[in-house]
């Protein structure tokens, strides 16, 4: 479904991605793990068009998308939940969700999806007239995910959804990710919490300084000595 080939990305003169190739199949959860600065976030930003790659190709459902602007990439069916939540803080919860449905013309189906979002995230329903900036960290993360789902993506890029959240909230985010995937949405999950990522994903890529250092089924990576030592704390 998604195929990234030989991606290189520069920030000024700094080469953030040297050579990243990855594949995501339909219905899969694929994890990207790695240290800070390994290129996980940059990979996602290149896929969703926020950062134009210097070299390489990105294909989605048979279409080349690496020269498209971000708003056009949303239209082909890729949703991106960016690092640090990035809500519209002075807009209400409801307005944030409506912004997620910006491209959809059919009011009835948007209304249905709003109801569904409130069913899936009851805390958002209770606070739907509240400004997004006043929500707690966990609630903000749920809202960012719900907002991305309002665009009905077929592939969802999740950047550090567990960052800075309490363990209980992390667990509920994990079950939400499974639930979304169960509804047929493919997922690329970027996580510092490698254990959580490898448990959720069927396959994973380990990034080290802008390259894919390792790849394979999550089970195999969980058992790998190098991965254990560097990413799972021994």
């Amino acid at each position: 479904m998604l195929s990234v080939k030989g991606l290189r990305v520069h920030y000024g003169k700094v080469e953030a991605l040297k050579e990243v190739s990855l594949e995501v199949g339909k219905g899969e959860i694929v994890a990207l793990v790695g240290a800070n600065g390994a290129g996980k976030t940059t990979s996602l930003r290149a896929i969703s068009g926020l950062k134009t790659p210097t070299e390489g190709e990105i294909w989605f459902e048979g279409r080349r998308i690496d020269r498209l602007p971000p708003h056009a990439i949303v239209r082909v069916g890729i949703g991106h939940v960016p690092e640090g939540r990035r809500l519209f803080p002075h807009m209400t919860v409801l307005e944030n969700l409506k912004a997620g449905a910006y491209l959809r013309a059919n009011g009835d189906s948007v209304r249905k999806d709003l109801e569904r979002a409130f069913e899936q995230f009851p805390v958002l329903k209770a606070r739907n007239r509240q400004k997004a900036g006043t929500l707690s960290g966990g609630e903000q993360q749920m809202l960012t995910i719900a907002r991305a789902l309002m665009g009905r993506p077929r592939l969802l890029l999740l950047d550090e959804p567990s960052l800075g959240l309490a363990p209980l909230v992390v667990a509920s985010i994990a079950s939400i990710i499974k639930e979304i995937n169960g509804e047929g949405v493919s997922i690329v999950l970027v996580e510092q919490n490698a254990r959580m990522a490898l448990r959720l994903a069927s396959r994973a890529y380990v990034l080290e300084t802008g390259r894919v250092a390792l790849e394979g089924p999550s089970g195999a990576l969980l058992a790998d000595e190098h991965v254990k030592k560097v990413y799972l704390g021994g």
Partner: peptide, 25 residues
């Protein structure tokens, strides 16, 4: 309005707005 909401979204976070399909330009 839809476009008015899009304007506010761009003003608050233009990258996040682009990720909702809003054409910032």
């Amino acid at each position: 309005s839809r476009e008015g909401r899009a304007m506010r979204a761009v003003a608050q976070d233009s990258d996040a707005a682009a990720l909702q399909g809003i054409n910032v330009a």
